[in-house]
Design a protein around this nucleic acid. Structure first.
Lengths: 349, 349
DNA sequence: ATGAAAGCGCTAACAG
DNA sequence: CTGTTAGCGCTTTCAT
């Protein structure tokens, strides 16, 4: 038996082989291939030619071990299957692929899972040079360990000072959405996606910020915030539908609803319609995100571009990795109100 | 200056440290920590204790280099942002995280990108032990190089013989959807998501298989397939809306439409409604996938569970990696017709 | 059951 | 500008 089952085919070439073929030392090969200075042009092209002929590919693990850098970055988030997260991931992936970095994905799945992940930097160190945290709340006491770990952090959405971040102004965006409803004449505006009790325990700020914008918009018009109109729904379509059902049967029936994600908005609209109500005639709904399906559904919403947000986060991280400089910038991504067909003035009684 | 900016904090412990602390050799530490046999129970617990005290974490790169295995798997797909792919990714991630494997993500973005990725196995070898190909068509001549590369392959959706795969029976699923429409009495049934000209050049079989099921259902009832009712839309919401627009204005106005993804179905429905038509009274629409938003939208569709498909693919791959045995199985995942509110009998004229 | 020692393939001083 | 030479931290024969 000549070869063990795996690993057939031509034995991969190593730096040694390339060096021999080019008639130089391995050090020169390493320099030439990585584009470092202090290599004579003629030598470099000889090395390049030899490498090409041998179809040489550096072993990433050997170089990671020797250099202490992985040329990989990680992205950690609550779920990979939800629209927003998948979009951010897409944006990150595109930038990293272009830069020749590997992308590792970590999903937290539950708040506890997120806590466990953030609580210990050791498992990821040496695996990635940097990490993008998407809507995962870093606690104050975890900052030090991560800073010491050598893993560069950038956060998306949820901010994690003192690390750089990319995201939108959630408070202002929510204010924009709710003001649109108020401008139309609504006064009984419900919030689907309110900050749930306990969210603060996990340090989540996004739901709270959006609720803050909702409250400010109401208060600016002298409309009191009523807890009966506040429904948490954990960014889940089904829970949003249930919440809508209860709101519509509740003591004060809202004439309009602000859902803090388009997925929740669609769940709410579906419920309203299955209850025989017309949207927007009977109840207006404004969402958040501008989901790929929002336009098709005629959904009025606040648009953000998670793909861009992901791209910027990746670029921020790559910059930091390349320059070594940590600029604790906070990039604010734009939002825009997209008025479509799910909002209208309240029915005049 | 005591320490270089990066890499502060306690210097990470190595096997050497653990060995010293436990009073054994590094070889024994290595064996004990990995649960290999031939380690006295007492010794093992001493090593475990020492490792815990030192907060030891093996350096993945060193072990990859020495052992020649990465304990990482990759997933390659056309897009990470689309619902189906994001779900598959979620399923894969969950299984791998549980198994302690790293997950690397590669997106092809274009057919050409996919071709380039598949054309050369070298870049991923040593990075991952296995690779899950989602709807990426491997050409015959690429099989050998991948088999030789040592990277284990499993495909999802699009099949890549002789490698194992997980997926649904696209032909049968489409047949199910279209038969539902025919059972309702429709005869002019359009297909949004037809195999585009050129798809075959890339070896894509999924659109063709779904179209095959559509055609068979019609033929079984003696209904001729008319090319005017066949519209490609590249799994894109906007293109589907455009296609719907043209179909509804075309020579033979369909009374029903089968869209090969829910996203396309929703685009089509949105267009129909904005044209003042009622769904399903004026035109029935059946989708494909059972997207998270399908139920909320009352969309009739063929359900599949991409999360499960991803999980199974990951498990297949892990089995193969652990046992070394390649069982060229083809796992067929279930589908189910979900009849909701977007389909009804054609209006009787 | 345990230890000694030889690498895995590459990078990074340090010389020259 | 180029070569020599240590390692990086772990796994794995081969002894014992």
């Amino acid at each position: 038996m000549a070869v063990p089952d795996r690993q057939r085919g031509p034995v991969p070439a190593t730096v040694q082989d390339v060096a021999a073929r080019a008639g130089v030392s391995v050090a020169t090969v390493s320099r030439a291939l990585r584009g470092l200075p202090n290599v004579a042009p003629a030598t470099r092209s000889r090395v390049l030619a030899a490498a090409a002929e041998l179809r040489y590919r550096p072993d990433p693990n050997a170089s990671r071990l020797a250099a202490g850098r992985s040329h990989a970055i990680g992205i950690a988030m609550p779920f990979v299957g939800q629209w927003y997260f998948a979009q951010v991931l897409a944006g990150v992936e595109a930038v990293l692929a272009g830069a020749g970095y590997d992308l590792l994905v970590y999903a937290a799945a539950t708040p506890e899972g997120g806590r466990r992940f953030l609580a210990d930097a050791l498992p990821v160190r040496k695996r990635v040079d940097g990490l993008i945290l998407v809507d995962l709340p870093l606690l104050q006491e975890e900052v030090g360990p991560w800073a010491d770990s050598g893993v560069r952090l950038v956060s998306v959405g949820q901010r994690s000072d003192p690390f750089p971040s990319v995201g939108i102004d959630d408070e202002a965006a929510a204010h924009l959405a709710v003001s649109h409803l108020l401008d139309l004449g609504h006064r009984d505006v419900a919030l689907i996606g309110a900050a749930p009790p306990g969210a603060h325990d996990f340090g989540l700020t996004v739901p709270a910020a959006r609720q803050g914008g909702y409250e400010r918009a109401l208060e600016e018009r002298g409309i009191p915030v009523r807890s009966e109109l506040l429904a948490p729904a954990a960014f889940d379509v089904g829970l949003a539908a249930t919440a809508m059902d209860q709101l519509l049967r509740g003591p004060v029936r809202p004439t309009a609803v602000f859902a803090t994600s388009d997925e929740m908005a669609m769940g709410a609209i579906g419920m309203a319609r299955s209850l025989g109500l017309d949207v927007p005639a009977d109840v207006s709904v404004v969402g958040f995100d501008d989901h790929d399906l929002a336009a098709a559904g005629g959904l009025t919403t606040v648009r953000q571009s998670p793909v861009d947000i992901g791209s910027w986060a990746a670029e921020l991280l790559l910059d930091e990795l390349r320059t070594g400089v940590v600029e604790p910038r906070h990039v604010l991504a734009p939002v825009e109100l997209m008025v479509r067909q799910t909002t209208a003035p309240p029915r005049t009684p």
